[in-house]
Design a protein around this nucleic acid. Sequence first.
DNA 1: GCGTAAAAATTGACAGTGTAAAGTTGCCAT
DNA 2: ATGGCAACTTTACACTGTCAATTTTTACGC
Lengths: 209, 209
Amino acid sequence: MPHNSHMTVKSLKKSHHHGDLRNALINAGIEILEEDGLDALTLRKCAARAGVSHAAPAHHFDGLPGLKGAIASEAFGIFSRHMLEAARSEGDSANARLRGICRGYVQFGLSHRALLDTIFGIDMTELEREPIEHDDSSAYQILRDACAPFVPAGTQPEVVEFQVWSLIHGYTMLFVRGHFGCTAPSDVADGPFDQVMALLDRIGTAPKP
Amino acid sequence: MPHNSHMTVKSLKKSHHHGDLRNALINAGIEILEEDGLDALTLRKCAARAGVSHAAPAHHFDGLPGLKGAIASEAFGIFSRHMLEAARSEGDSANARLRGICRGYVQFGLSHRALLDTIFGIDMTELEREPIEHDDSSAYQILRDACAPFVPAGTQPEVVEFQVWSLIHGYTMLFVRGHFGCTAPSDVADGPFDQVMALLDRIGTAPKP
DNA sequence: GCGTAAAAATTGACAGTGTAAAGTTGCCAT
DNA sequence: ATGGCAACTTTACACTGTCAATTTTTACGC
């Protein structure tokens, strides 16, 4: 006996008191992450910024991990849009698109570190977790498209995709935290980006004999 | 007027009440990380496990971030010993050593995730931070030695080192959290390790024309 | 319309946590 | 012995997540 089968298709769950509190909490969380970093993210602060009482989030998310998961999904959308732009920023060739994606990855890590940490801090193996949602315009798909020209015949596309993804993700995570020995990097150019990404030129070629 | 210039060279700061409380707190923290994960690490729990009052850690570390930094240094030593063993586990050839290091990296991430997250969660760019200490037997040096045979003449060793490091670090971080789509990975073999590490065979070769 | 039930949000309480200030204990040099 | 100091304890407080009880709002059947 579904009691709300009358709801319109585009029902935004805009409901009783607040009006889409769920999204308001997610947006508040993103603001806090951008302003004050990962450790500042708090259920109570999100609630306060959304203008509701401190216990209100419990009706929409399963604790702080639940809210973090929802924020990660939203942040992944922001990340995806950033990557789409980056893919086009360096030219139209296949090489330029792949290079642009990698540079955009690092740039996003520098400019929105807490967001990237939230996205990739999520443990997809935990039970009772709904995975981060990603549609056809997600960063995954953008990376996949950019890798496609480099996939040798008879090879699974995932292979190249995972190679590139591992390389740029590892570089970004190590670089933004200064593990490469650069002191306080504030720009991609401050690191050995070009030197490491030179490995991309070997992608899709045969191994040395 | 140094008031303690009388202390012996090997003075372990074994002092008044406890006797090397600093190290006791670090070890307690590592135990907690191994048993209950990153979120369970708490100043008060470390203090309780070391048998002191909850405010005692403040006299040895600058808050929880300070303790985490000291734990990261200790965990990096554990990681380094693990990597030294892994480097020898697959054979004596240069290829086997590099492959062994990479496999050991992922294995360590699976078996001691909280430790690896603590090590590489440290932000080396933050001011007033003392960097993680690493001597000649550190994981950095082990990786550098393993990469040396692949460094082309006239190339800086760091280039190859950073390429390999980025690749394996990114792979590990993404894999252990299930971002490659593997459900609940419990072994390196559960992931596309070999496929991604095939890129290592292109290390040190000339780019395609 | 109206009453009832469910959803949404509030309030109050509680256990943990980090942190700061003040107090206590034991060791050492003078 | 005694003054000083470092290590530790005690006490207190603000902040956090979480739960139970309550109130307010909305939706639906009658």
